[in-house]
Amino acid sequence: MKRGTPLKQRASRLLKSYQLYLFVLPAVLYYVLFHYVPLYGIQIAFKNFLAFKGIAGSPWVGLEHFERFFRSFEFTKIILNTIKLSVLQLVVGFPAPIILALMLNQLMHKRFKKFVQTVIYAPHFISTVVIAGMLFLFLSPDTGMVNKLIGLFGGEPVFFMGDPDWFRPVYVLSEIWQNTGWGTIIYLAALTTISPELHESAVVDGANKFQRILHIDIPGIMPTAVILLILSTGNIMSLGFEKVYLLQTPLNLPSSEIISTYVYKTGLVGAQYSFSTAVGLFNSIINFIILITVNQIAKKASNTSLW
Rank of each mutant, 00 (worst) to 15 (best):
I194A: 01
Q296N: 13
S232T: 08
F160E: 05
I44P: 08
G144C: 08
L306A: 06
V130N: 05
L231V: 06
H199Q: 13
T193V: 15
V294T: 04
F275W: 10
V87P: 08
T193N: 15
L268W: 02
L188S: 04
V24D: 07
M222N: 11
T277C: 10
L85I: 09
I131D: 00
I213E: 09
L88P: 04
S276P: 10
L85S: 00
N81D: 06
K243R: 13
A202Q: 03
H65G: 08
L25F: 02
S58V: 05
P141Q: 07
T224D: 11
A27Y: 05
G183C: 09
I44E: 10
S302A: 12
R13H: 06
I218E: 11
A225V: 06
V87Y: 07
N252Y: 03
I98K: 06
A190T: 07
T143D: 11
F241T: 02
L137H: 14
V146T: 06
M161N: 03
F275K: 11
L251V: 09
V61I: 15
M134T: 03
F73K: 15
H35C: 15
T277A: 02
E64V: 15
P6E: 00
R10Q: 14
S274T: 11
N81V: 05
E156W: 07
N283R: 14
M1R: 14
G155H: 06
V119D: 08
S140Y: 01
A298H: 00
Y245M: 06
T118P: 02
Y273T: 03
T266R: 15
G234H: 03
L22I: 07
S260D: 15
S302W: 15
K114D: 13
L7W: 12
E64G: 15
Y30V: 12
I290Q: 13
F136W: 01
E175S: 12
P141A: 00
K84H: 09
F125L: 05
A225W: 01
L231S: 10
T180P: 01
L14W: 13
V170S: 10
I83P: 00
Q9L: 11
L33E: 10
V279G: 03
F23H: 02
A132P: 01
V91A: 03
S276R: 14
Y245F: 14
Q106H: 11
L231R: 12
I98Q: 03
I297V: 12
T193Q: 14
G162T: 13
W307I: 14
G41K: 09
L247P: 07
A298F: 02
G162I: 07
Q296H: 08
V146K: 11
N48S: 14
R3H: 10
K16S: 13
N208P: 00
N179Q: 13
M161V: 06
I99P: 08
E156T: 15
R10I: 14
P26C: 08
Q9P: 08
F52I: 11
I194L: 10
E74V: 11
Y30H: 10
L100G: 03
V129Y: 04
P97Y: 03
G267R: 07
Q43C: 12
Y36W: 13
Q19K: 14
T249V: 03
T192H: 04
F282M: 15
I292Y: 10
L188F: 01
L191Y: 04
I289F: 07
P95G: 00
P164Y: 03
A298P: 08
T184L: 04
I227A: 00
F125R: 02
I44W: 07
I55W: 09
I285R: 04
G41L: 02
